[in-house]
Amino acid sequence: MIQNPYSPGLHKLVTLEVQKTEKLLSSEKFIAFSEKLILKFDLEKVGISQHNFDNNSFTIAICLKESHICIHTWPEFQQLTLDVYLCNYLQDNTAKVKAITNDYIAYFEAKILKDFEINR
Protein backbone atom coordinates (compact mmCIF):
# COMPACT_ATOMS: atom_id res chain seq x y z
CA MET A 1 0.00 0.00 0.00
CA ILE A 2 1.33 3.44 -0.94
CA GLN A 3 0.87 5.93 1.86
CA ASN A 4 0.23 9.60 1.17
CA PRO A 5 2.64 11.79 3.24
CA TYR A 6 -0.02 14.53 3.67
CA SER A 7 -1.27 15.01 7.23
CA PRO A 8 -4.61 16.85 7.56
CA GLY A 9 -3.52 18.41 10.85
CA LEU A 10 -2.64 18.07 14.52
CA HIS A 11 -5.42 17.71 17.09
CA LYS A 12 -4.26 18.49 20.62
CA LEU A 13 -6.42 17.37 23.57
CA VAL A 14 -5.52 18.30 27.13
CA THR A 15 -7.07 17.98 30.56
CA LEU A 16 -5.82 20.65 32.92
CA GLU A 17 -5.95 21.27 36.65
CA VAL A 18 -6.48 24.92 37.58
CA GLN A 19 -5.99 26.31 41.08
CA LYS A 20 -7.50 29.73 40.29
CA THR A 21 -11.11 28.58 40.04
CA GLU A 22 -12.31 32.03 38.95
CA LYS A 23 -10.70 31.38 35.55
CA LEU A 24 -12.99 28.36 35.17
CA LEU A 25 -16.02 30.58 35.77
CA SER A 26 -15.42 33.44 33.35
CA SER A 27 -16.48 32.59 29.83
CA GLU A 28 -16.15 36.28 28.86
CA LYS A 29 -12.47 36.43 29.85
CA PHE A 30 -11.80 33.13 28.06
CA ILE A 31 -13.40 34.47 24.88
CA ALA A 32 -11.44 37.74 25.13
CA PHE A 33 -8.19 35.81 25.54
CA SER A 34 -9.12 33.53 22.65
CA GLU A 35 -9.83 36.53 20.42
CA LYS A 36 -6.28 37.75 21.13
CA LEU A 37 -4.86 34.33 20.22
CA ILE A 38 -6.88 34.27 16.99
CA LEU A 39 -5.26 37.58 16.01
CA LYS A 40 -1.80 36.57 17.26
CA PHE A 41 -1.80 33.37 15.19
CA ASP A 42 -3.51 34.92 12.15
CA LEU A 43 -6.54 32.62 12.28
CA GLU A 44 -10.02 33.33 10.94
CA LYS A 45 -13.00 32.99 13.29
CA VAL A 46 -16.21 31.67 11.74
CA GLY A 47 -18.29 31.80 14.92
CA ILE A 48 -18.56 31.07 18.63
CA SER A 49 -21.11 28.96 20.44
CA GLN A 50 -21.19 29.04 24.23
CA HIS A 51 -23.24 27.83 27.15
CA ASN A 52 -22.92 28.91 30.78
CA PHE A 53 -24.18 26.43 33.35
CA ASP A 54 -25.94 27.18 36.66
CA ASN A 55 -22.65 26.84 38.58
CA ASN A 56 -21.01 29.32 36.13
CA SER A 57 -18.94 26.63 34.44
CA PHE A 58 -18.99 26.91 30.68
CA THR A 59 -18.56 25.15 27.39
CA ILE A 60 -17.40 27.05 24.33
CA ALA A 61 -16.75 26.03 20.76
CA ILE A 62 -14.87 28.47 18.56
CA CYS A 63 -15.28 27.53 14.95
CA LEU A 64 -12.35 28.60 12.80
CA LYS A 65 -11.88 28.55 9.07
CA GLU A 66 -8.88 26.36 9.92
CA SER A 67 -10.98 24.13 12.28
CA HIS A 68 -11.77 24.71 15.98
CA ILE A 69 -10.94 25.37 19.63
CA CYS A 70 -13.24 23.87 22.31
CA ILE A 71 -13.27 24.07 26.10
CA HIS A 72 -15.37 22.56 28.90
CA THR A 73 -14.80 23.65 32.52
CA TRP A 74 -15.48 21.84 35.79
CA PRO A 75 -14.74 24.30 38.62
CA GLU A 76 -16.02 21.82 41.21
CA PHE A 77 -13.09 19.57 40.23
CA GLN A 78 -10.68 22.43 39.36
CA GLN A 79 -10.38 21.02 35.84
CA LEU A 80 -10.99 21.79 32.21
CA THR A 81 -10.71 19.95 28.94
CA LEU A 82 -9.44 21.78 25.89
CA ASP A 83 -9.00 20.72 22.32
CA VAL A 84 -7.25 22.62 19.57
CA TYR A 85 -7.28 21.45 15.97
CA LEU A 86 -6.00 23.27 12.90
CA CYS A 87 -6.01 21.85 9.41
CA ASN A 88 -2.87 21.80 7.28
CA TYR A 89 -4.69 22.77 4.10
CA LEU A 90 -2.46 25.64 2.93
CA GLN A 91 0.41 25.27 5.41
CA ASP A 92 1.67 23.03 8.21
CA ASN A 93 -0.04 24.36 11.36
CA THR A 94 1.50 21.84 13.78
CA ALA A 95 3.64 24.45 15.55
CA LYS A 96 0.64 26.81 15.85
CA VAL A 97 -1.48 24.11 17.52
CA LYS A 98 1.24 23.45 20.09
CA ALA A 99 1.86 27.17 20.70
CA ILE A 100 -1.87 27.94 21.09
CA THR A 101 -2.26 25.08 23.55
CA ASN A 102 0.76 26.30 25.52
CA ASP A 103 -0.68 29.84 25.62
CA TYR A 104 -3.92 28.48 27.09
CA ILE A 105 -1.97 26.45 29.68
CA ALA A 106 -0.13 29.63 30.67
CA TYR A 107 -3.39 31.64 30.76
CA PHE A 108 -4.94 29.17 33.19
CA GLU A 109 -1.64 28.71 35.09
CA ALA A 110 -2.53 25.06 34.80
CA LYS A 111 -1.00 21.71 35.56
CA ILE A 112 -1.32 19.20 32.72
CA LEU A 113 -3.20 16.06 33.78
CA LYS A 114 -3.59 14.52 30.32
CA ASP A 115 -1.99 15.49 27.03
CA PHE A 116 -2.83 13.78 23.75
CA GLU A 117 -1.70 14.57 20.23
CA ILE A 118 -3.51 13.04 17.30
CA ASN A 119 -2.03 13.46 13.85
CA ARG A 120 -5.06 13.26 11.65
Score class of each variant (00 low, 15 high):
Y6W: 13
S7L: 07
S7T: 08
L10H: 07
H11N: 13
H11T: 13
K12C: 14
T15A: 11
L16Q: 09
E17K: 13
V18D: 08
Q19K: 15
T21P: 06
K23A: 08
L24P: 02
L24G: 07
L25M: 14
L25G: 01
S26F: 00
S27W: 00
S27D: 06
E28A: 12
K29V: 07
K29P: 00
K29Y: 00
F30W: 09
I31G: 04
F33G: 04
K36N: 06
L37C: 06
I38P: 01
L39Q: 11
F41I: 00
F41T: 00
F41V: 02
L43A: 09
L43D: 14
E44G: 06
V46C: 04
G47V: 13
G47Y: 15
S49D: 13
S49N: 14
S49V: 13
Q50L: 12
Q50M: 12
H51K: 12
N52T: 13
F53R: 02
D54Q: 09
D54T: 12
D54S: 13
D54N: 10
N55G: 05
N56C: 08
N56K: 04
S57G: 12
F58Y: 15
T59I: 15
T59M: 15
T59L: 14
I60R: 10
I60S: 08
I60P: 05
I60E: 06
A61C: 04
C63R: 07
L64A: 04
K65V: 11
K65M: 11
K65L: 11
S67T: 05
I69N: 06
I69C: 03
I69Q: 03
I71C: 04
H72N: 12
H72F: 13
H72M: 09
T73Q: 11
W74G: 06
W74M: 12
P75M: 07
E76L: 04
E76G: 05
E76T: 04
Q78W: 08
Q78G: 06
Q79E: 06
Q79I: 03
Q79M: 07
L80H: 03
L80I: 00
T81D: 01
L82S: 06
V84K: 07
Y85R: 10
C87D: 10
N88D: 04
Y89C: 14
Y89A: 15
L90K: 15
L90E: 05
Q91A: 09
D92E: 12
N93E: 08
T94C: 09
T94F: 14
K96A: 11
V97W: 14
K98T: 00
A99P: 01
I100T: 01
I100L: 00
I100F: 01
N102Y: 04
D103Q: 06
D103I: 01
I105M: 05
A106Q: 14
A106C: 08
A106Y: 03
Y107W: 06
Y107M: 02
Y107F: 10
F108M: 04
F108G: 06
F108E: 09
F108Y: 14
E109L: 03
A110P: 01
K111A: 10
I112C: 01
I112L: 02
I112E: 02
L113T: 03
K114W: 07
D115K: 02
F116C: 04
F116H: 07
E117S: 03
I118M: 07
N119C: 00
R120N: 05
